[in-house]
């Protein structure tokens, strides 16, 4: 099971959960699974975040896949200069 860590700004939408395990193996499966468990995590909310997979921050993770032992963190997408 991959591990998802929610930073404190996202814990508002997860009922305070900081860490969950998911059966998902892809970003799209991950979003579907999380939205089933935490309906407040809407597409709008999740769309503001990229996904870090095992430390690599991916701004556009739509087609990303990950392993059973992956650590996943949603990271706010930011604009650079």
């Amino acid at each position: 099971m991959a591990k998802v860590i929610f930073t404190s700004d996202l814990q508002r939408f997860t009922g305070g959960a900081r860490e969950v395990e998911v059966a998902a193996g892809s970003y799209q499966q991950l979003v579907a699974e999380l939205q089933q468990r935490f309906p407040a995590l809407t597409d709008t909310i999740i769309g503001r975040y990229g996904l870090a997979i095992d430390g690599a921050i991916i701004q556009t993770p739509l087609l990303e896949r990950f392993g059973n032992d992956s650590e996943l963190v949603f990271v706010t997408r930011i604009a650079g200069g």
């Binding site: 860590i5 930073t7 870090a52 430390g55 650590e71 949603f74 990271v75 706010t76």
Partner: peptide, 8 residues
């Protein structure tokens, strides 16, 4: 770090 992703 605070943004949640361990440094590589």
């Amino acid at each position: 770090p605070l943004f949640g992703v361990p440094f590589q």
